[in-house]
Write a protein that binds this DNA or RNA. Structure first.
Lengths: 110, 110
DNA sequence: TTTATATATTGCAATATTACGATATACTTC
DNA sequence: GAAGTATATCGTAATATTGCAATATATAAA
């Protein structure tokens, strides 16, 4: 098959999975980390920063954008990309809740 | 191709990507959320909780285990699965750092 | 020891992902 | 308008993922 049965899961589960999947590739982690490192949105040189071809990076950027992890806006000749704070904070919140829940538990585990 | 060029990225980036990729599927999100919901490790009934076949779930569990997100231990006839707190906390930390860094920035974005 | 129960593995078909060369698009500058 | 620069899209090959039926394995119970 190869076809994820999204219809069996909640919207929340599906949209979360899309975001995490987008970060589930080292090149895309690297892109996000680069965008964090430079202190503003970056126009242009992402391609020069990574050891992948221009079409491949363009594809990864598209996926990050679709998942809502980055935003892009046309800036003359180039395109400006920056991190979408809101999505990062959502993910932070999600794992924070999990951590908190886990801390509150007995250690009755295996 | 279809072959991720892991060698071009740092170990940290690669291992993080593996963990996030493991959560990048709604079924695996659902499994983790179920393990959170029940207040202890669960022996057995994960298969009954999800609308997927037993082999498929077994495969997803394997992937979660490989990524270090869950732990499993044999408990007589069944197998006990529970969340690996440490990994969750790692992810929490990662996104917390990102959130913090983003908060400290000027809003000089696009 | 046979039978039942729980989970893993194998094998396979359908689909998705990754990567890149070639090419298209779009804006800038000359 | 022509040439240059930056990014996107198309097409395609290689590999990975998803899902399940069939089967294997392993323990428990009878």
């Amino acid at each position: 098959m190869g076809l994820t049965k999204t219809e069996h899961f909640s919207t929340a589960q599906n949209t979360l999975a899309v975001k995490l999947k987008a970060l589930g590739h080292p090149a895309r982690v690297a892109i996000i980390e680069y965008l964090m490192e430079v202190n503003t949105c970056i126009c242009g040189d992402i391609v020069n920063e990574l050891p992948l071809s221009q079409p491949t990076i363009s594809q990864h950027l598209k996926e990050l954008k679709n998942a809502g992890l980055i935003k892009g806006s046309i800036e003359g000749n180039a395109i400006c990309y920056c991190i979408n704070d809101e999505t990062i904070r959502e993910l932070h919140q999600y794992f924070q809740n999990m951590s908190a829940t886990l801390s509150g538990k007995q250690d009755t585990c295996c």
